[in-house]
Simulated assay, not measured.
Amino acid sequence: MTALALPVTEPRARFRDLLASEWLKLWSLRSTGWSLLLGALVVVAFNAGQAWDHYRYWTSYDAGSRVRFVRDGMALLDAFTGNAGMVLILATASMGAMTVVGEYSSGQIRTTFAAVPARRSVMAAKTCVVAAVMTGFGLVVAGMSFWTSQAILSVHGVGLPISHPGAVRIVVASALLAPVSALAGMALGTLLRGGAATIVSAVVLLLVVPGVISEKRHWSAVLAHLQPQKAWQRLLQIGDWPAPFPWTVGGAWLVYAAWALGAAAVTVFSVQRRDQ
């Protein structure tokens, strides 16, 4: 008698295995480490440069300007500057986009989906890994920027400790700007699947649009306040929001959460019914 061969069923991939796979996939690229290092150096340099500028010309300020600088806690403005924020948004959005676009351009995504047909699980694991890495990156960059800028200003005795009111919020808001931007880049990469188109779209969506929307009218102010860059600026603001239509710190945190969750949902669910 001939024994019947039983079909072999491959075990279903566990989510922790997918996380490990995506983690190894991300760090197997040399560009990952170098991109993070270069981005961190540029961002910290922008912030340190602003603090150095205040340190260098401190003796040329009049007495009233020095008093206002200390009284209004303006040293916190050097902890994370607008230029540094723009660089952080561009760098992290690009890195987030390339984690998806790189696989599509190389064709590796076909192998991945062939090995693990559960596309949503694969993309969810990729999203979790990118969010975790970018959160850690943001914390390091924001923490180093705060420490460096305040250390420079402390030479003249005007640097502020992390316990100063508003300091923790600035560090956390700047740190979380990294994963929010990276997830937005991932969502655009999943939809567009082209490197140039995705980067241009990220620049327009995350940097150009917030810059051109006016806050002088209520409807346009609402649109402006829905942007992550504007939310970040609100979280860094010392005192009241200097615009005709002010908004709350809590509202800015909600914008962060909405963009992160929305971008993650687009990344995870948009691949289910699309061709590879």
Rank of each mutant, 00 (worst) to 15 (best):
A3H: 13
A3M: 11
L4H: 14
L6D: 12
P7H: 07
V8M: 10
V8A: 10
T9N: 09
E10V: 07
R14H: 10
S21W: 13
E22G: 13
L26T: 15
S28N: 09
L29S: 12
L29T: 08
S31T: 07
S31W: 00
T32W: 10
T32F: 07
G33I: 02
G33W: 02
V43S: 11
V43A: 12
A45D: 03
N47M: 04
N47F: 11
A48L: 04
A51Y: 09
Y55A: 04
R56W: 14
W58S: 12
T59V: 10
T59H: 12
D62E: 15
G73Y: 15
M74S: 15
L76M: 05
A79D: 09
T81K: 11
N83M: 13
G85H: 01
V87H: 06
V87K: 03
I89Y: 11
I89E: 03
T92V: 08
S94W: 00
S94Q: 03
A97R: 00
G102H: 13
E103A: 14
S106K: 06
P117V: 06
A118Y: 13
R119K: 09
R119N: 02
R119L: 01
R120S: 02
S121N: 09
V122I: 11
M123N: 09
A124Y: 11
T127I: 10
T127Q: 11
C128T: 15
C128E: 14
V129I: 10
A132W: 14
A132Y: 14
G136E: 09
G138R: 07
G138Y: 14
G138Q: 06
M144C: 15
S145G: 15
W147I: 15
W147Q: 15
S149H: 14
S149M: 03
Q150Y: 06
Q150N: 15
A151H: 11
I152F: 07
L153S: 12
S154W: 12
G157D: 04
V158Q: 05
L160V: 07
S163Q: 08
S163R: 08
H164M: 08
P165Q: 09
P165K: 09
G166T: 04
V172P: 04
A173L: 01
S181R: 03
A182W: 06
G185D: 00
G189D: 04
G189C: 09
G189N: 07
A196P: 03
A197M: 01
S201N: 06
A202G: 07
V203E: 02
V204F: 01
V204E: 03
L205D: 01
L205E: 01
V209P: 02
G211M: 14
I213F: 15
E215P: 08
K216T: 06
K216G: 01
R217I: 04
L223G: 10
A224N: 05
H225W: 00
L226A: 09
K230I: 13
A231W: 08
Q233I: 10
R234C: 02
R234F: 01
L235R: 03
Q237E: 15
G239D: 06
P242F: 00
P242T: 05
P242I: 04
P246Y: 01
T248V: 04
T248N: 06
G250C: 05
G251V: 10
A252Y: 10
L254N: 04
Y256D: 09
A257S: 12
A260I: 06
L261H: 01
A265P: 03
V266A: 00
V268K: 00
V268R: 00
R274M: 04
